[in-house]
Simulated assay, not measured.
Amino acid sequence: MRNLDITTLRSFVAVADSGGVTRAAGFLHLTQSAVSMQLKRLEELLGLDLLDRSGRTIALTASGEQLLAYARRMVALNDEVIGRLTDQAFEGEIVLGVPHDIVYPVIPRVLQRFNTAYPRVKVQLVTSYTKTLKLQFSRGGCDLILTTEVERTGDSETVAERPLVWIGAADGSAWRQRPLRLAFGRHCTFRPRAIQALDAAGIAWEMVVETDSDRTIEATVSADLAVHTMIEGTEPPYLRQIDHGGSLPDLPAQMINLYGADSARNPIVTELADLLRKSFAGISAPRLQSVS
């Protein structure tokens, strides 16, 4: 197995950028002979001529031009890794509050990407209801919070606006039953809107699950014992949007709001806020799958 050396690639890039070994040596704080030796080793490793030395100035061969693009990327990635892992400025802890029902699918991806970029920064994820998170944020208990609300309030910014949809089991039929069996959290902000829409449509309903546990709700719904509502695009993979064909009422749009981004003095908090902003804006609407 042959392995490319970053130091050798760095010398190669420097020669290509400066147009000669002498200038590259000065830039790299190496002797001219050291740079020449590194280039020779690189050519021997690859078994290719990378530099055209036939003229008065050094030029890249076709193979050298091809290698240059890869070399730039490898050197840049090396420097990024070293910078991220050794820069003591990127340390600390960020407390991020997110409502239970919008953790999936964005938050796991955001946490993974953020940890890759800032491995020394700990993100403490707090999940609760919007009302609780706003109270914690007002008391300084969270650096950033996301909320689900019907409007933009206070110093928040809306990072996504999506409709509420009816959610049921894959290939389920609970949505056809009357009274309609519902499963909701006791403090869920979607609950009164769903009930209001059902009452306005004259559809009888009964609350068969009232709990503080999202797992309990998801288990009940996935067993086809009740239906639930979620923001479009945030349902877990084992539940489905209900293709009810108008048998259930439409539900209002819901805003996902971000608090704390504007007042963040820590640049790393700002980085996390920007990642959240971009990730939620990029949620694609899932394909509607009939559970009829």
Rank of each mutant, 00 (worst) to 15 (best):
Asn78Thr: 08
Phe12Met: 01
Arg23Ser: 12
Gly202Cys: 04
Pro105Phe: 01
Ser292Ala: 15
Tyr259Ala: 03
Thr116His: 14
Arg56Ile: 12
Ala281Phe: 03
Thr86Asn: 12
Tyr70Met: 10
Leu111Lys: 03
Gly26Trp: 02
Asn115Ala: 14
Ile82His: 15
Lys131Ser: 14
Gln124Val: 11
Glu151Gln: 15
Gly245Val: 10
Lys278His: 09
Ala62Ile: 09
Ala24His: 08
Asp214Asn: 15
Ser138Thr: 04
Gln254Arg: 13
Ala183Arg: 01
Ile268Arg: 12
Gly20Met: 03
Met207Val: 09
Gly64Met: 07
Ser213Glu: 11
Ser213Gln: 12
Ala25Asp: 07
Asp87Asn: 13
Gly245Met: 13
Leu125Arg: 10
Leu180Arg: 03
Asn115Phe: 07
Ile167Phe: 02
Val98Arg: 00
Arg84Gly: 10
Gly97Arg: 03
Gly172Arg: 05
Leu50Ser: 04
Ala89Tyr: 13
Arg186Asn: 11
Ile268Asp: 06
Ile167Arg: 09
Thr130Arg: 00
Thr116Ser: 14
Ala264Glu: 06
Asp143Trp: 02
Pro99Asn: 00
Ser279Phe: 02
Leu111Ile: 10
Thr270His: 07
Gly246Gln: 14
Arg113Lys: 13
Val209Phe: 00
Leu225His: 09
Ile145Ser: 09
Gln177Trp: 12
Tyr70Pro: 06
Leu135Met: 15
Trp205Phe: 09
Gly47Asp: 13
Glu80Trp: 11
Arg53Lys: 12
Glu206Tyr: 07
Ala253Asp: 08
Gln136Tyr: 12
Leu85Arg: 09
Asp49Glu: 15
Arg23Cys: 02
Val121Cys: 03
Trp175Asn: 02
Asn3Pro: 05
Glu157Asn: 03
Gln38Asp: 11
Ala69Ser: 15
Leu248Lys: 04
Val291Ile: 15
Ile256Ser: 01
Glu43Cys: 08
Arg56Val: 14
Val75Cys: 10
Ala273Thr: 04
Asn3Gly: 06
Val126Gln: 04
Lys134Gln: 06
Ala76His: 13
Val123Leu: 01
Gly83Cys: 13
Ile58Cys: 11
Gly83Lys: 14
Ser63Val: 04
Gln88Glu: 12
Ser173Leu: 07
Ala253Val: 15
Arg181Glu: 05
Leu111Phe: 07
Ala169Glu: 06
Arg265Ile: 13
His29Val: 00
Arg23Ile: 10
Ala197Gly: 10
Ile283Leu: 07
Trp205Tyr: 14
Ala261Met: 04
Val103Asp: 05
Asp171Leu: 07
Arg53Ala: 10
Glu210Phe: 05
Thr8Gln: 15
Val227Asp: 00
Gly246Cys: 11
Glu206Cys: 06
Lys122Met: 06
Leu288Cys: 14
Phe114Cys: 03
Arg113Leu: 05
Arg176Asn: 04
Val227Pro: 00
Arg186Ile: 07
Ala14Val: 10
Gly26Ile: 00
Leu251Asp: 05
Asn257Asp: 08
Ser33Ala: 09
Glu44Thr: 12
